[in-house]
Design a binder for these strands. Structure first.
Length: 158
DNA sequence: TCCATGCGCGGCC
DNA sequence: GGCCGCGCAGTGG
């Protein structure tokens, strides 16, 4: 499958726990050490981290509103400028266009749906339903992506 | 408080 | 395609 979408990482069960981002990376769940979105503009997004580090995030488990990357103060978590539809944000947009599954891992954070006790948990596959430019809580433009769990392929599935 | 490190991407040949 | 250098990033010691 030359143009295969990104699916479950080999040998990793949905619900698997990892102590930190390095462990997630080594397991092939989410490769970047720091970035929350892994993906390429032309191929779509491979995986994302959900920990509600962005003020405009909303995590409801089966569906979630995921704020794009960029223009965020690294310490306060507040937005400090307008986000652009480039780089990893474009990757998520491409995933939406091609209906590709994206791997979701949840970390600890206020507002995270059923967060792990510590570290990170691989929560399975989601699709990017749509996305829109919006004005976030801090008054800057954000790109907001709506993710929906793939039935039977995510942590909350029966 | 500081800063490493991995990855995407563009430039260049 | 391959190499290289730049800039960014939902960490974490």
């Amino acid at each position: 499958m030359p143009d295969s979408p990104f699916g479950h990482p080999p040998g990793v069960a949905v619900g698997a726990l990892f102590p930190d981002r390095v462990a997630l990376s080594v397991a092939g769940v989410h490769r970047p050490r720091r970035a929350g979105i892994c993906g390429r503009a032309r191929e779509g997004a491979e995986s994302v981290i959900v920990n509600c580090a962005f003020v405009d995030d909303q995590d409801q488990g089966e569906t979630l509103l995921y704020t794009g990357s960029g223009a965020r103060h690294p310490r306060t978590g507040r937005q400090i400028g307008d986000q652009t539809l480039t780089r990893s944000n474009l990757a998520l947009a491409e995933s939406a266009r091609r209906r590709l599954a994206v791997r979701v891992s949840r970390g600890v954070g206020r507002g995270v749906w059923r967060p792990p006790a510590q570290g990170y948990r691989y929560d399975g596959l989601y699709t990017v339903e749509d996305y829109v430019a919006d004005t976030g809580e801090d008054g800057y433009r954000i790109w907001r992506f709506r993710l929906a769990a793939v039935p039977g392929e995510w942590f909350g599935a029966e």
